[in-house]
Amino acid sequence: MTSTTQTASKGKSLDRKRLSAELSFWAFVTPAIAGLVLFMAIPMVWGFLLSLSRAQNTIHFGHFIGLRNYTDLLSDPDFLNSLWTIFVFTLFIVPTTFLFSLWLAIAVHNIPRGKAFFRTVFFIPTAVSYAAASLIARMSFFSGQSNGFANHIIGLFGLAPIQWIGTASPPWYWLVLVSVRLWLQVGFYMIIFLAALQQIPRSLYEAAALDGASGGFTVFRYITLPQLRAATVSVLLLNLIAAFQAFDEFYNILGGSGSSSGNIGLARPPLVYIYNVALSSQDFGRGAAGGFIITFIIVAFTLVQGRLFGFGSAKEGR
């Protein structure tokens, strides 16, 4: 009898424990789920329904027109150009950022003294906003006037001032766009590589030395680089997504509010195109369709890259 009561009370306390565990689970998880539903799921579904609607000057879906927004976009040369622009930009900026940040990380890692100082110095630009950096680039570094910084430097060598932003041949504006992005993002990826470099056990290098591996490059090629694989994959992946989402520097250097709109056509990334369609032309249906096309492209590229580098595969865990 006693034992039965004990078991029952034990069972009750277990139930209570389970209940309180259950309750605390939901207490912690509900806000996150509510946030996801409110700010991710609903807008995504809403956006998808909008992309199937004619939604001019309205965000109400309901006037369904099938896939016409998608076909309109894919037959618009400006949109196709914008895809090409971002493709070329990504093809250039991803490897460049990768090489620069890896090189910086190795340099900072191997510096005998002042490591913290250089790490901070290279990382600080990450905290600068793209909009601010773009304006500095446009109005100060690469101003087209003879007193602009870049023009002043080339002036010392007796060269005539260059219109860095409005000139199409040669396309100097790419130099401005790329240098702003490298300036702001290389430090961030450097930190990822630096963390990974510090994780590599010393014993590996010692073993390599015992095995007769000599010369910096051999060690780098056979020890350092393979050990950086996880960091490399995440740098490439993050960088690729960031490149596809480029907006700020293009918008603020080539166009932007308070400046004339003729230059943005030189290199208009898809997000600027979508911004113009949705917010300037107020065609939210087409804007939403553009958003889904870009999402699809980013997902496709990420999957291909994941397949190439084996990111997220079982092998990765080992």
């Binding site: 040369p77 400006d78 199409a168 709109s261 003729g262 056509g265 030189l266 369609v277 300037s280 065609d283």
Partner: peptide
């Protein structure tokens, strides 16, 4: 404004 931007793109291509 989307007509304007179509025409602007054309003129950018012509001039630049």
């Amino acid at each position: 404004s989307s007509m304007s931007s179509d025409l602007t793109s054309a003129l950018t291509n012509i001039v630049k």
